[in-house]
Amino acid sequence: MSGGRPTMTDVAIDLTVECVDERGIRHEIDSVLGYSVADPFAVTMTFVTSDGDLVWTYGRDLLMRGVHSPTGDGDVHVSPAVSYTGQAMVGIELSSPDGHLVLLARAVDVEAFLARTTALVAPGRESAHCDVDQLLSQLLAS
């Protein structure tokens, strides 16, 4: 699976997500949803595993839009969903050359997380928090 390296977060919530494997067996996966003002356009989803943490980074706006309607291109798709018990959920679909995973997170948890991120950086104001010099240094260093 594709990912990135962990970063310091200003907002983080522990989140248990559900997935169903190819045999139809439901699994719960511990994860952490994170947001940093230093990277205001992105959120991270860190999966805590016995082999180490796996971090996926994708757009905060993608998560915000996906809570209410299906959205996404490429490796990440987000959409509203309903659990088998009728609970409001958010579906997060991750794809990479290594595999494909569809996760369900409780909508109330995702919405609470997003409310905390928007209290720090309002949607549309992300660019005011970007350090262009630091970004250029990182790009040139890699």
Rank of each mutant, 00 (worst) to 15 (best):
R125M: 11
L62E: 07
T57N: 08
T49A: 03
R65V: 08
E126C: 07
L101R: 08
R125W: 07
M8K: 13
T16C: 05
E93C: 11
Q138A: 12
T16I: 12
V17R: 02
L139I: 13
V110G: 04
F113A: 01
S83G: 14
I29R: 01
S142Y: 10
P97W: 03
E93N: 10
G59H: 09
I13A: 02
E126L: 07
E28Y: 10
Y84F: 09
A88P: 15
H129W: 12
V102Q: 11
G52Q: 02
M89C: 06
S137I: 08
V48L: 15
S79P: 06
M89I: 04
A105Q: 03
S142C: 07
A88D: 15
F113Q: 05
G3C: 01
F113E: 03
L33G: 00
L94S: 04
D73Y: 08
A112T: 15
V20D: 05
L54V: 04
D51P: 00
L135W: 03
P123L: 01
D39A: 13
L114W: 01
R60F: 09
G3S: 01
S50N: 12
G4T: 13
D133Y: 10
T118N: 11
R26I: 04
E18A: 13
E22W: 09
L135K: 05
G3F: 01
G99Q: 08
T57M: 14
S36A: 14
R23S: 14
D61A: 14
H27Y: 06
T46Y: 00
S79I: 07
H100Y: 15
A38Q: 14
A119S: 13
M89E: 12
D75F: 10
D61N: 13
L94W: 00
E22I: 12
P6I: 10
W56P: 00
D10I: 04
D109Q: 13
H68I: 05
V121A: 02
